[in-house]
């Protein structure tokens, strides 16, 4: 077929360009432009509230990589990810397997209940959980004491040793419904005849699941892990409302660190948007790196 010249092609598609324009402008303003600008801001000594900004090159980055709090927050974000994602993946899978049974009459009800926290505002969850885990007669402590599991109330959120596991537990509770839904979608792709045939052949229990079902849902599993991993790095609202990074920075993950250096003037110092941007860029690149690595892994596994 004779190919039209480019100018004619573009002219013919003028409506297409008009149609992609509104969304492109919006995304350009609030996603693409900010990505570019945060690179630029990261090179400035700038409070964000005045016009005075001094170009200081890579000095912000230099300061960040030499800041103990920066690395603590950086590592803590990954502890959070490695501590929550496997739990969600495994627990979500087990629940999905049970709820995928037609015979279980109450399955839709259970599914609704488990999904309920997902639709609840995350900031509210954080605030409510500060009550639930309160050492002063909070329901969690009340329950533990009334069943004699502990003799003295536990200060879940006030103790640097328990705060991170508690927040991680709440995170799993809040978002497990999503993981369950992902797995339910994955299980829908297992062909009924494969399943029936395997059962007739006498594949039972774990053999059925490990040898028949698991290979079929594996491509899904990788996408689920990727989405979950990135999700577990974005936990600002929950931690900000539950602990604000405390006590003594012991639950400060990367996003809290960025927010604190950018906007919270705790010791009366000026906020430092330039510095916070440098931390943010460093963080964004780290997340991107992980995403790309997982993407490569995904492609390799899918080819097999």
């Amino acid at each position: 077929m004779h190919k039209k010249p480019l100018s004619k092609q573009i002219y013919d598609a003028r409506w297409c360009y008009l149609f992609v324009l509104p969304c492109s402008i919006l995304t350009g303003m609030f996603v693409i432009y900010p990505i570019g600008m945060s690179w630029y801001f990261s090179l400035l000594d700038w409070s964000g509230f005045t016009k005075e900004a001094k170009f200081i090159g890579l000095q912000n980055y230099y300061e960040a990589v030499n800041d103990e709090f920066f690395w603590d927050a950086f590592i803590r974000s990954f502890i959070f990810m490695f501590g929550t994602v496997p739990v969600k993946i495994v627990l979500g899978f087990i629940i999905a397997v049970f709820l995928n049974n037609q015979v279980l009459k109450l399955a839709p009800f259970f599914r609704t209940v488990i999904f309920m926290p997902v639709v609840t505002a995350i900031a509210i969850i954080g605030i409510v959980m500060t009550f639930v885990f309160s050492p002063f007669n909070g329901p969690a402590n009340k329950f533990l004491m009334s069943t004699n599991l502990t003799s003295a109330p536990i200060d879940f959120l006030g103790n640097p040793d328990t705060v991170l596991p508690t927040v991680m537990g709440v995170y799993v509770w809040k978002w497990l419904g999503i993981t369950m839904m992902y797995w339910l979608a994955a299980l829908q792709t297992v062909p009924q005849d494969v399943y029936d045939a395997a059962k007739i052949d006498g594949a039972e229990g774990y053999r059925l699941w490990v040898h028949i079902i698991l290979p079929i849902v594996l491509p899904f599993a990788i996408v689920i892990i990727l989405v979950e991993a990135v999700g577990a790095l974005n936990v600002f609202p929950l931690i900000e409302t539950m602990t604000a990074g405390g006590p003594f920075f012991s639950s400060e993950v990367m996003e809290i660190y960025i927010f604190r250096t950018a906007f919270v003037t705790d010791s009366g110092t000026m906020p430092r948007l330039g510095y916070a941007c440098a931390a943010g860029v460093f963080w964004g690149v780290a997340v991107l790196f992980i995403t790309v690595l997982q993407g490569l892994w995904m492609r390799r596994t899918r080819r097999i």
Partner: peptide, 10 residues
């Protein structure tokens, strides 16, 4: 996968 924390300041 751009984190919100990355774009919020700009």
């Amino acid at each position: 996968f751009i984190p919100q924390g990355y774009t919020i300041i700009p």
